[in-house]
Amino acid sequence: MSVINTEIKPFKATAYKDGKFVDISSDDIKGKWAVFFFYPADFTFVCPTELGDVADHYAEFQKLGVEIYSVSTDTHFTHKAWHDSSETIGKIKYTMIGDPTLAISRNFEVLREDQGLANRGTFIVDPQGVIQALEITAEGIGRDAKDLLRKVKAAQYVASHPGEVCPAKWEEGAATLKPSFDLVGKI
């Protein structure tokens, strides 16, 4: 079953952010746009390249009113150790959620039960807590923060312009479509 257009399930966790351990819950997410960025494990290979890419674009996400939450099944202690020991991860200013109970990964349906690790899953969540977009990739396929930004902008555009949709490769400022009877077969 797909989680698209469903409300995120309640959760509570401890995270690492700005040199501190912080408690976070699903209640903290509501009222703003969010991206949940699941990855298999700290101290690995593709994961730091992805998290570093998101860190490089974090200010752009914040300008859009979007908060980033990276999530792995590691603990918040492990996130701190990785942040302190890696130049790439040391750039991260967003929240790094620990999910050692596996509950959040299960809630988003990205948990590899037999390994206790999350798949690479990206979820765009609207201010009502509803999942508007998702992407799940295999272990060896890294994601692109620029494309994630494009998808967030499209989700925000569609949310604020009822009756319009964003076509393939849509970029901010480009033409959108207004689905109608007269448009059928014209594209």
Rank of each mutant, 00 (worst) to 15 (best):
K63T: 12
H161N: 14
Q132G: 09
S26F: 04
I8N: 03
V35W: 02
E87S: 15
K17S: 14
F45L: 05
G140F: 12
I68F: 01
H76N: 07
S25I: 08
E171I: 11
T88K: 11
T176V: 14
W170N: 01
K80P: 05
G90H: 10
A138L: 08
Y16M: 08
G19D: 09
I4V: 15
K178P: 00
T44W: 15
K63H: 08
G121P: 08
S70G: 08
S85N: 12
F11D: 06
S70C: 04
D28A: 03
T88D: 14
V22L: 10
K178F: 08
A175P: 02
E135D: 13
G142H: 09
E7R: 10
I104Y: 13
N107T: 09
G19S: 02
P10S: 08
G173K: 03
K20R: 02
S85K: 13
K30Q: 07
S105P: 04
V130C: 04
A145K: 04
I92S: 06
F21W: 07
D114V: 10
A81R: 03
L111E: 11
R112C: 12
Y58N: 12
W33R: 00
K93W: 03
D18R: 06
V184P: 02
V46E: 11
Y69L: 00
F123C: 00
I131V: 14
K151F: 14
E7I: 14
V35D: 04
R150F: 05
V54Q: 01
D182V: 11
I131M: 08
A59W: 00
V110G: 04
K169C: 11
V152C: 04
I8A: 06
D23W: 01
T95D: 06
T49Y: 01
F123W: 04
S2E: 13
E172F: 12
P162I: 07
V130Q: 01
L177V: 13
W82C: 12
L148I: 15
W33K: 03
S2I: 10
A154K: 06
V22M: 00
D18H: 05
D114G: 04
W170K: 02
A168N: 09
L177N: 06
A41L: 15
G52A: 08
I97Q: 00
T44N: 10
G65E: 01
A103T: 14
T78H: 08
T14E: 13
F21R: 01
F45A: 00
A118R: 04
Q128N: 13
A103G: 05
S180Q: 07
H161K: 02
G31Y: 02
A154S: 11
A133E: 14
F77G: 05
Y58Q: 10
